[in-house]
């Protein structure tokens, strides 16, 4: 535990590995192979890799057509341009007919720091989550990414994976960890508050838990790698056992993880609850960490929310 690993590097490795194991897997890019790193795949399988140019709607349509013929296409671009630009194709040509297409939302959230708001998608979880039957995932580290992508390749149906650009500390290389779609992971136990985190915020949640511990506050951290179907059981258990919940995501607090958890709580449990995330705002151009700081997406930001929610008990 504690090693740093590149999520996108892990993705590139597992996709190439899966390509060896399953000849149905096809990779499609919209001119951003330099970001998706699918050259690892295309070097081994040039006939199963397609660069369709800067045309994301076309890319998703092509993937849908291939899927009807038994292929398992993985399509790649920035989250902004798959979930955002090609929303209609994902909704009508992939998820509605329940086709076996895997949509990658690379460089999600503010991980695309310098490019600014046009390229920083903080709405993709919301867009993808509301499409009926879509599976929506977000890995927190390199290890989880590998297990997740393998599970996604084995799952017969449409999936969206939100991929960060940055490297993260690895938290999931713990004994007994096994990725399962729809099953959140308790990374550390605690009784005072539960921090439910997704993607790169898991790393910050773990830091927050460590710092809270030094102050005598015992925080549970849950890695919610599946936004849909949301793990109701782990949420309700956390509500019952800690009595206070914070969600944290590098995504708009409207429509993403916070909303998904709020929906479960509102219908089932009345406990103090705070959504930590992007407060309905666009990003700014700058270094990734600086943009994160601006939006309070730090361990300190989570700590403040944890203390506030405990005070409401």
């Amino acid at each position: 535990m504690g090693n740093t690993g590149s999520v996108k590097q892990a993705y590139a490795e597992i996709l190439a590995q899966l390509g060896k194991e399953n000849e149905k897997i096809v990779a499609i890019d919209a001119d951003l192979q330099a970001c998706s790193l699918t050259d690892k795949f295309s070097d081994s399988f040039p006939d199963r890799h397609f660069n369709v140019g800067i045309a994301e709607c076309n890319m998703v349509g092509i993937a849908a057509g291939m899927a009807t013929c038994g292929k398992i296409p993985f399509v790649h671009s920035f989250a902004m341009f798959t979930a955002g630009r090609a929303y209609d194709q994902i909704r009508n040509s992939v998820v509605y007919p329940h086709l076996n297409v895997k949509v990658m939302g690379m460089y999600a959230g503010f991980t695309n720091g310098e490019d600014g708001p046009t390229h920083q998608c903080v709405e993709d979880l919301s867009l993808m989550r509301t499409i009926p039957g879509n599976v929506v995932l977000c890995p927190s580290d390199a290890n989880e990414t590998k297990q997740m992508v393998r599970a996604v390749a084995e799952y017969d149906g449409p999936c969206y994976i939100r991929m960060p650009r940055s490297a993260t500390q690895t938290h999931t290389d713990i004994p007994g960890y096994q990725f399962e779609i729809g099953k959140g992971v308790e990374l550390c136990d605690g009784k005072d508050v539960a921090i439910i985190a997704t993607g790169i915020m898991v790393e910050r949640a773990m830091q927050a838990a460590q710092l809270l511990k030094e102050e005598g506050i015992c925080a549970r951290v849950i890695d919610m790698h599946t936004i849909k179907p949301i793990d109701r059981q782990i949420i309700l258990k956390a509500a019952d056992e800690t009595g206070a919940i914070v969600t944290t995501e590098d995504h708009n607090i409207i429509g993403g993880l916070g909303s998904a958890v709020a929906e479960v709580l509102a219908e089932n449990r009345c406990v103090p609850f705070i959504r930590h995330g992007v407060k309905d705002a666009f990003g700014k151009s700058g270094k990734f960490e600086a943009v994160m700081e601006l939006h309070g997406l730090t361990a300190q930001g989570i700590i403040a929310c944890a203390k506030a929610v405990i005070a409401q008990k």
Binding site: V26, D47, R48, F50, C57, N58, M59, V60, G61, I62, A63, A64, G65, M66, A67, T68, C69, G70, K71, P73, D88, Q89, N92, S93
Partner: peptide
């Protein structure tokens, strides 16, 4: 506007197979 890209995908799949 969806049909032609889907058709392109089917045609590419046919060629691959």
């Amino acid at each position: 506007g969806h049909g032609l890209p889907v058709g392109v995908g089917m045609a590419l799949a046919g060629r691959m197979q």
